[in-house]
């Protein structure tokens, strides 16, 4: 049999892309609904949730704090020296506090968790898919969504906001220390602190935590979805790892815009 040459039709490939994106979106929503549905059975999987929280929360805590310490310091240094030119460096507390709570804390921490945990989730679930363990679960009458996706979703929803609290806390302190010791800025910590507390309201903090919650959900969902869709042996697992990171970064940024837009 001779091989038939198929001419490349741009409309065909564009249409295919659109359809597969639509299909992927639909499948992710279906997975999300099913995962949420199985949250009612969370008490049965407490040990699994506990293990995940341990991995995600405690495992990521040191690096998340370290990262946000430097973020807070750089933020303070950059804006502080700029503000000093106009003699209004007292506002530094408000600026660092608000940007850490609203944006940098949730976004940076989530990106870190997506890179560190989301990819590992995709690889783990992907390996289970490739090596027929998911099929084995199904023959044991265990719903893979309940057994694998639900504990991960709950763990992410709990851990990411908690991580953000610690990260913001450390970042703000880092910013304050820089503001005090840097001769150009030279704002005492008490002034920095007062200024920040006046600018921050409970509402701001809650908004930041809501973002963290949504991003946590995105990380777990993307990790599990990409994992479940893994095909093609060990290479497929590697591809899934990368895919999950890219996809969750994109979705986190997109969700961040939407949330900011509607919460201002």
């Amino acid at each position: 049999m001779t091989k038939k040459l198929v001419p490349i039709n741009p409309f065909h490939s564009i249409g295919h892309k659109i359809l597969s994106t639509a299909q992927g979106t639909g499948e992710m929503i279906a997975l999300l609904l099913e995962t949420v549905y199985y949250c009612k059975e969370a008490p049965r999987n407490l040990s699994s949730i506990y293990r995940q929280v341990n991995d995600i929360g405690i495992g990521t805590l040191p690096i998340a704090m370290l990262m946000s310490l430097f973020v807070g310091m750089v933020l303070s240094l950059q804006t502080g020296s700029e503000l000093a030119m106009y003699g209004s460096q007292e506002a530094i507390g408000a600026i660092v506090g608000l940007s850490m709570v609203r944006e940098l804390g949730p976004v940076m921490t989530s990106l870190l968790v997506a890179g560190r945990i989301g990819s590992a989730m995709a690889a783990e679930v992907g390996a289970m898919q490739v090596y027929e363990e998911i099929d084995a679960l199904k023959t044991l009458e265990i719903n893979p969504v309940r057994y694998l996706a639900m504990p991960r979703l709950i763990a992410c929803l709990l851990s990411v906001p908690a991580l953000v609290v610690f990260a913001v806390f450390i970042g703000v302190i880092g910013g304050g220390v820089v503001a005090e010791v840097n001769p150009k800025i030279n704002v005492p910590f008490s002034v920095y602190y007062d200024n920040m507390i006046r600018a921050l309201s409970y509402k701001e903090v809650l908004k930041g935590l809501l973002k963290a919650l949504v991003f946590g959900g995105i990380i777990a969902q993307v990790g599990c979805y990409v994992g479940f869709k893994t095909k093609g042996g060990a290479r497929g697992i590697g591809e899934s790892t990368t895919r999950s990171v890219v996809l969750s970064f994109l979705l986190i940024m997109f969700a961040n815009y939407l949330l900011t837009r509607f919460m201002i």
Partner: peptide, 27 residues
């Protein structure tokens, strides 16, 4: 080319009908 299936009763059921969505929502 396979047509896109947007709605699945269960994530693992693959192509599924509206029926499944309804049962799923009931569930």
């Amino acid at each position: 080319m396979k047509t896109a299936h947007l709605i699945s009763g269960s994530f693992f059921d693959g192509p599924a009908s509206m029926n499944k969505l309804v049962t799923f929502l009931n569930k």
